[in-house]
C-alpha cells in the first residue's frame, strides 16, 4: 500500500519533471525540471532500499552535474530567443527521430514481453543475504570483485580532468605577447600577494 503510493507520487514527479525538461523554453527552467526528475528517481531508489544509490544520485547528479549545467548557462548567458531553425549538425533531426522511435519501441516491447512490469513493488530477485548492511555488501563487492573496473574508472576520470585542464590552459608566452591589452580581466596576478 505505502509502496504503491510512494511509487505513484514519485512517478508523477519524474514524468512531470521529464516533460518540463523538454517543454520549458528557458534553459534554466529545464535544468530545474531535471533536478526534480533526479529527486524523483532518488525517491524510487529509497523505496527499493537502495539508499546508497539514492544518496549518490543526489550528490553526484543533482549536486554536481546540474550545478555545472547551471554554471555554464548562467555564465554564457544562453539567450532565451535562441533560434532553433539552424541545425548545427546536418541530418540531426531525422537521426533523433529514428532513435526516439527505437527507444519507444523498446519500451513497448519490454512492457508487452516482460512478465513483471514496473509496479512499484520491491525487487523480486532474492534479497542479499549474509552479514552486514546493504552498504557494507556493496563496498565489499566494489573493492574486491570489481576493483579493477573501479580503479580503471577513477583513472579515466583523472585523465579526463587533466585533459580538460590542458585544453583550457592559457596560451603560451608568445601568444600572450600578441594579445597584450586584450581581456586583462581575469588575468590579474593572483600570486603577487605572497
Amino acid at each position: 500500500m505505502v509502496d504503491t503510493i510512494v511509487f505513484v507520487l514519485a512517478a508523477l514527479v519524474i514524468l512531470s519533471g521529464a516533460l518540463g525538461v523538454i517543454l520549458a523554453r528557458n534553459p534554466v527552467h529545464s535544468a530545474l525540471m531535471l533536478i526534480m526528475t533526479l529527486f524523483g528517481v532518488a525517491v524510487v531508489f529509497v523505496a527499493q532500499e537502495a539508499h546508497f544509490l539514492a544518496a549518490v544520485q543526489v550528490i553526484v547528479y543533482a549536486g554536481a552535474i546540474v550545478v555545472l549545467f547551471l554554471f555554464v548557462i548562467m555564465l554564457l548567458g544562453v539567450d532565451q530567443a535562441d533560434s532553433i531553425e539552424t541545425e548545427p549538425i546536418g541530418g540531426q533531426r531525422p537521426a533523433a527521430g529514428v532513435v526516439a522511435l527505437a527507444s519507444v519501441g523498446l519500451l513497448v516491447l519490454l512492457a508487452v514481453r516482460a512478465v513483471q512490469v514496473s509496479s512499484g513493488a520491491r525487487s523480486t530477485s532474492s534479497a542479499l543475504d549474509g552479514e552486514g548492511t546493504n552498504l557494507e555488501k556493496l563496498a565489499r563487492v566494489l573493492f574486491t570483485d570489481y576493483l579493477f573496473a573501479f580503479e580503471a574508472t577513477s583513472a579515466l576520470l583523472v585523465i579526463a580532468v587533466v585533459g580538460a585542464v590542458v585544453l583550457a590552459r592559457k596560451p603560451a608566452a608568445e601568444d600572450v605577447q600578441d594579445r597584450k591589452g586584450v581581456g586583462a580581466l581575469g588575468r590579474t596576478r593572483s600570486g603577487s600577494g605572497r
Binding site: F52, A54, A55, V58, I59, G63, N134, L135
Partner: peptide
C-alpha cells in the same frame, strides 16, 4: 537513514 552523513553531503 542508513546513509547518514552522505545525507549531509547531499
Amino acid at each position: 537513514p542508513p546513509v547518514g552523513v552522505l545525507f549531509l553531503l547531499a
